[in-house]
């Protein structure tokens, strides 16, 4: 860079704002604010219509992308309470197995299993994690890492719930288009609900627990109870994802507790950026298709996303979403040093 110049960052005019309230002065301003959101939503909505062009393969990729996005959202909410999960597959497996069990034993269709497994799975997960919620630091990570592996071992050796064979021939959904729209709807609702939640004072308590749990206790909150509520809320979309995939595959088995469902969401959030929820979704839409492209390289893709996890954790901790957002709201220009000093 020319030593006589420096970089200056300028907010675009529209960013005359306090917090998130925009002052809209013209149609152009309106577009500036609305367009990025509208584009994303429209693209998503019309996606299933391209079935003929894209083929069912990419539809399935889209489906697993959104499922990972749900797990990532769940991870992001937990992180907002200061709980770092290394095992999102716990929630995924809980929901998946519950739906599978209900369907396999009582012959229930997805219409009943999905809601029951979502809420029931979240309850079960919360109860499982409840005893360790009073611990700080790496303990939550350790237990979420260990429990899914423990559960799959227990299923293996005791041969309950189908053992290594799993439970198959379960009822499925009418068609792929329906599946896509269903998951998309849940995804929209989750993002919206989570964004709303963190804006309320109730959600504020979660973030406060992350920042300084003792001060929250000193304000008279039973934080273990609050954390339990947070875990429940976070478990909902993840358990739904598990239950959904059970009916999608018409099968549930030990792979539901696999490491993939833990690493992919975690990496997605780290890539997209922690704490925004949009970042979690964006991250999955980058990561999952990419890992599909790398599928022929076998486990090299796991290496790739481990490395991405590493690079983003160290190099771009704010994640892609905040980075892009900043670039969108600001532009940079080079100004001569003299001019800058006169300002």
């Amino acid at each position: 860079m020319n030593p006589g110049y420096r970089k200056e960052r300028i907010d675009r005019g529209i960013k005359v704002r306090s917090d998130d309230v925009f002052v809209l002065a013209s149609m152009r301003d309106l577009l500036y604010v609305v367009l990025p959101r509208a584009l994303v939503i429209i693209l998503l909505l019309i996606f299933p219509a391209f079935q003929d062009i894209l083929g069912s393969y990419w539809q399935n990729v889209m489906l697993s992308t959104m499922v990972i996005a749900l797990l990532a959202l769940s991870w992001d909410l937990l992180a907002g309470i200061g709980l770092v999960s290394l095992g999102q597959s716990l929630f995924f497996g809980m929901g998946g197995y519950l739906a599978g069990y209900l369907s396999f034993t009582f012959g229930w269709g997805p219409l009943y299993t999905l809601p029951v497994a979502t809420v029931g799975g979240a309850l079960l997960s919360t109860l499982t994690l409840y005893p360790i919620l009073r611990l700080r630091g790496i303990y939550f990570g350790m237990i979420t890492f260990a429990v899914p592996l423990l559960l799959s071992r227990v299923i293996e050796v005791t041969k309950i719930l189908g053992g290594t064979e799993g439970m198959s021939s379960l009822p499925s959904f009418p068609n792929t288009g329906f599946e896509l729209y269903l998951v998309m709807a849940v995804l929209f609702v989750t993002v919206y609900a989570y964004r709303m939640l963190v804006g309320t004072d109730y959600g504020l308590v979660f973030n406060a627990i992350r920042d300084n749990d003792r001060a929250v206790v000193a304000a008279g909150y039973d934080i273990q109870w609050y954390k339990a509520q947070g875990v429940f809320i976070a478990a909902l979309p993840a358990c739904f994802a598990g239950a959904f995939m059970t009916h999608h595959f018409q099968f549930v088995g030990m792979p539901a507790f696999a490491l993939d469902y833990s690493i992919l969401p975690l990496t997605s959030v780290v890539i997209g950026g922690v704490g925004t929820f949009f970042g979690a979704v964006l991250g999955s839409f980058v990561l999952v298709p990419l890992s599909e492209l790398l599928r022929e390289f076998g486990s090299l893709r796991v290496v790739v996303y481990s490395l991405m996890l590493l690079v983003f954790t160290i190099g771009l901790p704010e994640g892609i979403f905040r980075f892009v957002l900043r670039k969108y709201h600001q532009f940079e220009r080079l100004v001569p040093m003299e001019e800058a000093s006169n300002e």
Partner: peptide, 15 residues
């Protein structure tokens, strides 16, 4: 940053 310490060492191990 405990979160990042755990995630990054975990990533190294998996890689």
């Amino acid at each position: 940053i405990v979160l990042s310490e755990v995630i990054s060492t975990f990533a190294v191990g998996v890689a």
